[in-house]
Design a protein around this nucleic acid. Sequence first.
DNA 1: AAGTGGTCTAGACCACCGA
DNA 2: CGGTGGTCTAGACCACTTA
Lengths: 251, 251
Amino acid sequence: MIKHSEAKVRKPRYVRLAQQLAEAIRKGTYGLGECLPPEVELCRIHGVSRHTVREALRQLDEMGLISRRRREGTTIRARSSRRRYTASISTMADLFQYVRKPRYRILSERLVSAGAKTAALLGCKRSERWLKFEACRYHAGVAEPISFTEFYVRPAYGDVGASLRKRNPLIYSFIERHVDERVIEIRQKVRATAVPPEAARLLRVKPLSPGLYVSRRFLVHGNRVIAGSVSIYPENRFEISLDWRVEWARD
Amino acid sequence: MIKHSEAKVRKPRYVRLAQQLAEAIRKGTYGLGECLPPEVELCRIHGVSRHTVREALRQLDEMGLISRRRREGTTIRARSSRRRYTASISTMADLFQYVRKPRYRILSERLVSAGAKTAALLGCKRSERWLKFEACRYHAGVAEPISFTEFYVRPAYGDVGASLRKRNPLIYSFIERHVDERVIEIRQKVRATAVPPEAARLLRVKPLSPGLYVSRRFLVHGNRVIAGSVSIYPENRFEISLDWRVEWARD
DNA sequence: AAGTGGTCTAGACCACCGA
DNA sequence: CGGTGGTCTAGACCACTTA
């Protein structure tokens, strides 16, 4: 069996120290709730400078294994940790990732009653009434739309109509405005699709050519859906980019 | 040095320095993609030791404002760090969202030198050497593959070969194994694509039919790419699902 | 060869707080 | 007061990568 090839890579002293300490904690050498030796003592024990010890402790801290307080010492908080990855976005605009002043063109606005597909999208019952918008999004100065979107919102939130009709508005501007108080979750699905003929005409691509299908549900407290959308993005006009960063979670 | 002992509520020097730098970045004094001055230069400018500078930079790094690389310098990656929505996954398997015992079939394994496309995918220079795998993924009992994947890994991590060849392995099992110490970030891009003829044959779909194109980079500490992949998912075989939850600001 | 961030040492004083 | 972690200085060498 092939051996690991990391023998040649010598890890920094503080990393090795952190691993040693984590292992000791895992094995119970230092028990939950107890304290690690003081930093200066760890220096003496392991024969390193305090900076190195603190760097190692910082790693354990980030992993959630220990917590440190002046005077009180370094307390064991958990015996092991595992990683999870987190992706963050800072604004709704990031979620939709529109660069360079996108423009909207609202194509239609009407009250509809949900059919099977819409009900599935919104997680509602059939024949429920929703306000439906159809829109295309553009980059300024580019004739071809970036996307075609069907947007549904509960009639109770129908003030969206007013905000949508104003000066090339962001379709989600009303959600942006309500987001701090209302929308607590967005559920998004992405899959490949063949662009339907009607959308293809608007998007100026060949019918059934490749496209991105993105559906979103906007939920408020209590898992109530207040809005939902389906967007179609043709090939080469849009890309979803996501950075996952590691985050430590205690067991 | 009996310097700054006047005010009692005074924040640590490195915190103030971090705030100064964050403000400068926000205002555009240092633009996106540009570099901050070298650490020693920052020491001179602000009249502090390198340790203090590094502590400040570490804060900016944690906020996601900068990234640092030997020789290359400290580059600005974002202008502000407000995060509102977060999507979490707990394991790599969640990222790849494979339900019900997926199976792998490795089609090829060879050492390649990066061409333009591969270099772009991996963020490396052309003609760098990488270990390349081609594979298809299946649901048990289903003849049609879920996806076709090209997977690249640095030869130094080549023990992946052994783990891949074993009993229908998860292609990323080696990353799972190394994850605790190594992979701290995954950058993912998703877009629509027409399935290329070769992939189409393997996937048993018509050439140029709609597909999902997903590229991923796996980064370790220091923003080094240790692996990357491109996967093609035909229509109706796969869906990426993401839940964004609001995260209350902790300013 | 030069210059970057990464690591590490040795030592200092400070802020906090229970004994 | 003593002893903890928190902050900071001054300086050193290393690893890496582009020119």
